[in-house]
Design a protein around this nucleic acid. Structure first.
Lengths: 106, 106
DNA sequence: TGTTCATATCGAGGTACTCCGAAACAGCGG
DNA sequence: CCGCTGTTTCGGAGTACCTCGATATGAACA
């Protein structure tokens, strides 16, 4: 009768949106999906800054920021501030954990 | 720029609810979670009838019925009518496909 | 045919999600 | 310190989700 892992449910809620899923997918290969030229820091190191993601997603900047914050709360991405730019990158370890937990629960 | 698989998103939306996730988890081992005595048919064959699931979930009958219908629309379970009882069972093939698609997209 | 039981569907109240623009916050450069 | 730029947070309008009770359907059985 024990309820399913709340962290898993939170992650699934974050994933249950085509745009958030897309963002996570783009972040798998940042150099493939975002302009290298504009990068203020190594994408593999810190990730991609919000403006690039926003441009590619085509949604309002506030919306993209909120989506990224939700992905972060769900533990799927990590944020790093470099100067005035916030960079988001996937947390591969947590993502793998979540997929494993899904396999266990599901 | 291609959008993520809509079927995957629909499945994730269905999974992004603790109760629906729980139902799916219970259905993994029906004989472990539901009374054998009341079973009108082999759980491994057709699954578990709505009344048993409803009793265990403790929600209104209409709610459980709607949740099961949503899981079915998402392709996660199959329904079989036996007399006046509708039995639901996991669609293991589709579930495996969805997990694979998630691994590919994510 | 009428009744009864299992399930599905409908309608509704409350809550959460989606997305926006406006405003607040935070790092810079002058 | 001021303004500029990137980002976050806030307030709101529309939509979807959660959950229920009431009602409708469908299958069995007297």
């Amino acid at each position: 009768m024990i309820a399913p892992d709340p962290d898993l449910v939170r992650a699934l809620r974050a994933l249950a949106n085509p745009i958030r899923l897309q963002l996570l997918s783009w972040l798998r290969e940042p150099e493939r999906h975002f302009p290298l030229e504009g990068a203020i820091a190594d994408p593999a190191e810190v990730g991609v800054c919000v403006s690039h993601i926003q441009t590619k997603a085509g949604l309002a900047q506030s919306t993209v920021s909120a989506y990224l914050a939700e992905l972060q709360r769900a533990g799927l991405v990590q944020a790093t501030r470099v100067g005035k730019w916030t960079h988001y990158k996937r947390d591969e370890r947590r993502i793998a954990q979540i997929v494993a937990a899904l396999g266990r629960t599901l």
